[in-house]
Every structure is written in C-alpha cells, then in structure tokens.
Computed example of a mutant assay.
Amino acid sequence: MLDSTKQDIIFGTETWINSSIKDSQIFPPGYNIYRNDRNLNGGEVLVAVCDNLISSPVTELQTDYEMVWCKLELVGHNAIYLTSIYNPKTSNKEVYKQFDISMSRATNGKNAFIIAS
C-alpha cells in the first residue's frame, strides 16, 4: 500500500511490533522511522517520515507515556513537531498527566506547531 500511495508522513498506533522487528520489515526504503516499542502485547507507536524531508527524533519530549516524537524542519518555516500517541483502554489519570507534561515541554519557549495522532 505504501508503494502505491507514496505517503510523506505516517502515524501508527497499536503496531504490535517490538525491537526484534526491523524497520525494513515494515516499510520500504525511503522512510525515517521513529518508534516506541512497548515489548508487550498491544500498543507500540511510530511516526514514519519520507527521507526526502528533514526530520529528527525529539527524545526530550518523551515521558513514561506511550508516545514517540520527531521534528520536521521545513526551510523558511518553524519546525513541526509530530507525535503518535497510544491511549490504552485501561488509561487512568496518570496517563493524562504524562501527556500534559510532554505537551508542556513541546510548547515551552517554542513557537511550536504540533501534529498529534
């Protein structure tokens, strides 16, 4: 499907992949993959960005919450922060607290444009 649609950015949740699965087993060449694998049944998140776009991981925005962040840089524009977030059915107040911490970090002192999935 990726070959036929040529998506620039892909958000994934509930990927069910773990560290034993290589990016190349899931995506064709031409993508930078940012993953947060939980290594349990279910969950796991990713953001895939076409490698003709300038992107990089943003680990300082991570918390204990199941999410992954990367930054997309466009010449002449502010950076765009991309995040894929998993909210399990068993979520509780702590999950929302961790999400709030991460979003506060993302917007603190930055003119941030954020796209979350």
Rank of each mutant, 00 (worst) to 15 (best):
M1G: 14
D3E: 15
D3F: 15
S4V: 11
Q7N: 14
Q7Y: 14
Q7P: 14
Q7C: 15
Q7F: 15
D8T: 11
I9S: 09
I9C: 09
I9V: 15
T13F: 01
E14Y: 00
T15M: 04
T15E: 00
S20K: 07
S20E: 03
I21L: 10
I21K: 09
D23R: 05
P28L: 04
P28K: 04
P29E: 08
P29D: 11
P29W: 11
P29N: 13
P29L: 14
G30C: 10
G30Q: 07
Y31W: 10
I33A: 02
I33D: 01
I33E: 01
Y34M: 08
N36F: 06
N36L: 07
N36D: 04
D37A: 04
R38K: 07
N39W: 10
N39K: 08
N39P: 08
L40Y: 10
L40F: 10
L40G: 03
N41K: 12
G42L: 09
G42D: 07
G42S: 11
G43D: 11
G43N: 12
E44G: 14
V47N: 02
V49T: 05
D51T: 12
N52E: 14
N52I: 14
N52G: 12
I54C: 05
S55Y: 09
S55D: 12
S56M: 07
P57W: 13
P57Q: 13
P57Y: 13
T59N: 08
T59F: 06
E60P: 02
E60A: 11
L61F: 13
L61T: 02
L61W: 07
Q62L: 10
Q62T: 01
T63S: 08
D64S: 06
D64E: 04
E66Q: 13
M67K: 09
M67E: 14
M67I: 05
V68Q: 04
C70R: 06
C70K: 04
K71H: 02
K71T: 10
K71G: 01
L72P: 11
V75S: 02
G76E: 05
N78T: 00
N78P: 00
I80L: 13
T83D: 04
T83Y: 03
S84V: 08
S84H: 06
I85C: 04
Y86T: 05
P88I: 01
P88C: 01
K89W: 07
T90G: 10
S91F: 10
K93W: 12
V95L: 03
Y96C: 10
Y96T: 11
K97D: 04
K97P: 01
Q98R: 11
Q98A: 11
Q98L: 15
D100M: 10
D100Q: 15
I101M: 01
R105T: 00
R105C: 04
R105I: 00
A106I: 07
A106Q: 06
K110N: 11
K110S: 11
N111W: 06
A112N: 06
A112G: 03
A112C: 09
F113K: 12
F113P: 03
I114G: 06
I115R: 13
A116V: 07
